[in-house]
Amino acid sequence: MTFTSDTFTYKAYTYTSSTSGVRLDDITIKLEKQRDGTYNVPADKILVKIHAAALNPVDVKLYNLSIWPLNYLLGKRGLGEDYSGKIVAIGDKAQLSTAFKEGDLVSGFSTSFVPNGTFAEYILVDPSKNADGQLTHAPKNLSLTDASSWPEVYGTVRIMTVGVDLKDKKFLVLGGGSSIGRSLIQYLRLEGAKEIYATASPRSAAVVKELGAKGTIDYTKGSILNPALELVSNGEPFDIIYDCVGSNDLFPKIEYLFPKTGGRYATIVGDAGFLKLSISSLLSTLTSVKRSLLSSYNYLPYTYKLHLGITGLDWIEGGRQLIEEGKLKPFIDSYYKFSEFDKAFDHLKTGKVSGKIILKVEED
């Protein structure tokens, strides 16, 4: 890509607060003058022209949390973590330190704390490990549009499972029909799980079983506690419970679900997977934090882990390999044009999504 000045401007969806709404805005990045008088991205950066980006529930949560004084402290922000696209410019240092080159098709993950997000025409990436995020070549067996669907999901699965012995264990996955739940079930099966059970709606139960769950609990019928207790009535407790959606149903009798000594409960959302900000959702978050602290000091008879964010682990190459080998299948709920962001975001807010919502920044 040829640049003719020391700045480059593109369009991105941004917001300043949850009351001001999301708007399409101009984003300008600074370029560096080269020895030959031309301009390029900073030496350690890569510029990707985004082809597609995937929406995640965390996008709604961060948007809803943008209230005073947080919105005042953070200022204008972007949305989006997952993306796919083509490298259109690469700095000298980045070209030497990575295997990427201009023209490569890539899948990437950008943390929620990078200001401009991925619902944009371009993204400037720092390819160093665990910096802005992670970048890999797009899986060869996915379209470039669908190549945006998997990084955040797989990264979350790896953060939840890293360092945990999964082989020959009995699992309960809360939210088996969610994007992360589906990916987690596939990963647990690959890692040699003995038995996997999951909560799921009647609509997604068949898919969840095809992916590796031995049985499902219909959460639409009410509390999942009694059905979960029935699954351990034969004397075989759950070794690990993974919560992908947010639930506190099990805690009144959770000691009956785990072995007398041990057991692990890991969640990515706490007790409530809220998409709307409320007093009850904030209180449930505080309860999760309290439970996590008690666990860290061994005051609970089981281990409780609250995983917030995807940091401290290099995971993206492993995910690409599993997808290319056909061992990990991403699921797509729907596609929207770049101009239809509001419709896509409203669909995400309903919480009734089976797979990823894809924003097509460029048409195929």
Score class of each variant (00 low, 15 high):
D165S: 10
N226F: 07
T199H: 00
R182Y: 04
Q134K: 07
P202D: 10
E195Y: 04
R189T: 15
Y154C: 02
F171Q: 01
P151T: 11
E191L: 10
Y154K: 00
D132R: 12
V207A: 15
K214A: 11
K167T: 10
R189M: 05
L142N: 09
S148C: 08
S107M: 05
L172S: 02
A131V: 15
G177I: 10
P127E: 13
G177N: 12
T220L: 08
A120H: 08
L188A: 04
S128F: 13
M160D: 00
L231C: 02
G108Q: 08
A200K: 00
T156L: 01
I224P: 02
V232E: 01
L174T: 10
G176L: 02
N141C: 05
F113Y: 09
K129R: 15
V114N: 05
S178F: 06
S179Y: 12
S223M: 06
G133E: 07
F109E: 07
V162D: 11
N130Y: 13
F109L: 03
F238N: 02
S179T: 15
G133W: 11
A193P: 03
L105S: 11
I123Q: 09
L225D: 07
T156K: 00
S223H: 04
R182M: 13
D146Q: 07
T145G: 00
S128M: 14
G117L: 06
Q186T: 14
R158V: 14
R189G: 03
F171R: 01
E191H: 12
S112D: 07
F119H: 13
S128P: 00
K140T: 14
G176F: 03
V114F: 10
L142G: 05
V208D: 15
A206Y: 14
V125K: 12
N116V: 05
A200V: 06
S143G: 12
I159K: 03
V153Y: 00
A120Y: 07
D239Y: 03
L225P: 09
T216S: 08
T161I: 02
E121K: 08
P115Q: 04
E210V: 08
V208F: 13
V162I: 10
V114C: 04
G212E: 07
V232T: 15
K194E: 10
P202Y: 08
I240T: 00
I240C: 04
Y219A: 10
N130V: 11
E191K: 10
A206G: 10
I224R: 02
N130C: 08
D165W: 06
G163N: 03
G177K: 10
L188T: 14
K140P: 10
T216I: 12
K170L: 03
G177D: 13
G108P: 06
Y219C: 07
G103L: 02
V114D: 04
V162P: 01
S148T: 12
I185V: 15
V125W: 14
V162T: 11
F113R: 12
